[in-house]
């Protein structure tokens, strides 16, 4: 995440304070939002913008003691409530590490909280799973036993029947990979 965050309004890059210095949010409770309609705030008990966003400087995040941190220091903010997870993340037992498994190598990079979680709705969206095992799905009863039971037994068999040895290239086009 860029720090401080910016957004393109009518193609012009703007920082948060570009608007918020002009339009002071007069509703600290954040009851209604006229802007940021795309944000679905589904963060459990944490249901107010200014719990995290500093009400004075929108390019900073606020901690519970009033101190502010930059957007790059998000983990400090999240840690206030998610202590166990923060502890695990520090050890590397929670979260995702990319680049290299070699500890402290230059290539190693541990993703921070908001690189995986949407801070406004941290719960993961449900995924469409990728296809399950296909070719080796043997012994499954065929829906319609058109072919003999023996042939229907094994997808390897079905595969072999489909791949006429004279048309080996035909099979290449229908690989199991999505």
């Amino acid at each position: 995440m860029a720090d401080p965050p910016h957004i393109a309004i009518d193609g012009v890059p703007q920082n948060c304070n570009g608007c918020h210095q002009i339009f002071q949010s007069n509703s600290p409770a954040g009851a209604t939002l006229n802007y940021h309609q795309e944000i679905r705030l589904q963060h459990g008990l944490n249901n107010r913008c200014v719990n995290c966003h500093d009400s004075q400087n929108r390019e900073r995040l606020t901690l519970r003691d009033g101190a502010t941190v930059s957007f790059a220091e998000t983990p400090q903010l999240c840690a206030q409530c998610h202590g166990t997870v923060y502890r695990d993340w520090e050890r590397g037992t929670h979260g995702k590490t990319l680049g290299s498994w070699i500890t402290n190598s230059d290539a190693q990079r541990r993703l921070s909280c908001t690189e995986c979680h949407n801070p406004h709705s941290p719960k993961y969206e449900p995924y469409r799973p990728l296809p399950g095992p296909n070719t080796l799905r043997m012994g499954e009863q065929l829906a319609s036993p058109v072919h003999g039971a023996r042939e229907g037994q094994s997808p390897l068999q079905r595969w072999l029947r489909d791949v006429d040895p004279k048309h080996h290239n035909h099979a290449t086009t229908d690989g199991g990979h999505p």
Binding site: G92, T93, H94, G95, K96, T97, L98, G99, S100, W101, I102, T103, S105, A107, L111, C116, Y124, Y127
Partner: peptide, 19 residues
């Protein structure tokens, strides 16, 4: 020094690999 493909792709960080 790189990560296995399955670790790299895992969207939830459920997979951990190292020395």
């Amino acid at each position: 020094g790189r990560m296995p493909a399955c670790v790299e792709i895992c969207p939830t960080g459920a997979r951990k690999f190292g020395n």
